[in-house]
Amino acid sequence: MSAVISTIKLHLNQRRVTFIAPLSIAGTVAIISVLISLVFWRAGSQPGSAGWIQGSQSNPGIVYALVGFLIYAGVASVATTFPFALTLGATRRAFIAGTLLWDAITAAYIAIIFAVLNVIELATHHWGVGFYIFDIYVLGAGNTPRLLLIVFLGVLSALTIGGVFAAAWVRFGIRGPQVIAVGVIFVLGIAAIAIVPDAAAIIAAFQLWWLAIAAGVVIMVSSIGMWLLVRRAIVR
């Protein structure tokens, strides 16, 4: 157990990466969003108008920017950290448990920060000037509990996906991630072939919680995959 906690501390060792980097990325994107809004404003769009709100809320830039970083963080949490963790004396078991717990801590941290900022955004009538940064469609359109869930599951998915790819690399070298990528494409292809005839009906019946289930499945599969790949991995 102590090695699990030590592994979490190992991941938290670079505090800047864990705590500051996601915020600075989100902050940068927020500033860019504001700049874009200003361009629209100067172009004649009126803050508060239906078109303005529609346009602002559809902008998922903040999500894209974070996903890239989070997948990198997920990869780094396994790829270069695994050999060092074993050198320090962690077991593979403790390393994976600690890594998954760190993933969850990071996801919760970002979700809570986003939720707080969302509440502030709503309370200040979108920062007093009609800027939509957190109150956007992909983050639940202002619904704070929903935002919490979306961000938590989203971050956790990105981190564990990065982790499982890195775990494949640790175990099998360069071929590992390639095999996973091919496998995923293959499964998605089969699924698409199976679903396409009923696509219209499925889209019509689409419920938001399906995504939550999908994220849950991705997280589960990635986590189990990480463990299975790393439990027999050796350091080279």
């Binding site: 190992l10 050198t87 962690a90």
Partner: peptide, 30 residues
């Protein structure tokens, strides 16, 4: 494992690590 120390000749360290990162975490495992 907590009784063994082994740093391989081509040891890899996590990205962006500096000396103080190593010295801060190592005691947790030793």
């Amino acid at each position: 494992l907590s009784k063994i120390s082994f740093v391989r000749d081509n040891q890899r360290y996590p990205d962006n690590y500096r000396l103080h990162h190593v010295l801060r975490i190592a005691p947790d495992f030793a």
